[in-house]
Amino acid sequence: MSNHSDSAYEFAVHHGEEEGKKVRKRIWLIFWVLLGITTVEVTLGLIWKSLSANPDAIWGMVKWTFIILTLFKAFYIVFDYMHLGHERRNLKWTILAPYIIFVLYLTFICLNEALAIRDFDFMWWNS
């Protein structure tokens, strides 16, 4: 064992008043971003049906807008509020890789299968 203590890492992140001001400014900036995105989402949720004469045609686009905005929010929460953006690259990938690889795949395969099963049952009932 080395005599190295891990207190050299994160316990030492004390900062002064000057640095604190900058940090707080960023915290509030991100708050406004999160609030703004949520407001856009809710507004879109309330009005999207009146945006087009044929709402069904634009639903796919609206849905992807919601999902992309959600990912933006998630990014800001994880990278700034949870500080992951400032951690070492190896920690970032340890945390993010399971989701990028596994959860995206699981989502794809489950939704795809659900639609296939739905269509199969539908044919079976009507045959």
């Binding site: 080395s2 891990d6 890492y9 994160e10 316990f11 951690e87 190896n90 920690l91 945390i95």
Partner: peptide, 16 residues
């Protein structure tokens, strides 16, 4: 060895 490879403390790493 003798290092925290992720550069964070044990407690925070376990929370992650």
């Amino acid at each position: 060895g003798g290092e925290s490879p992720f550069g964070i403390s044990y407690g925070k790493m376990m929370m992650w």
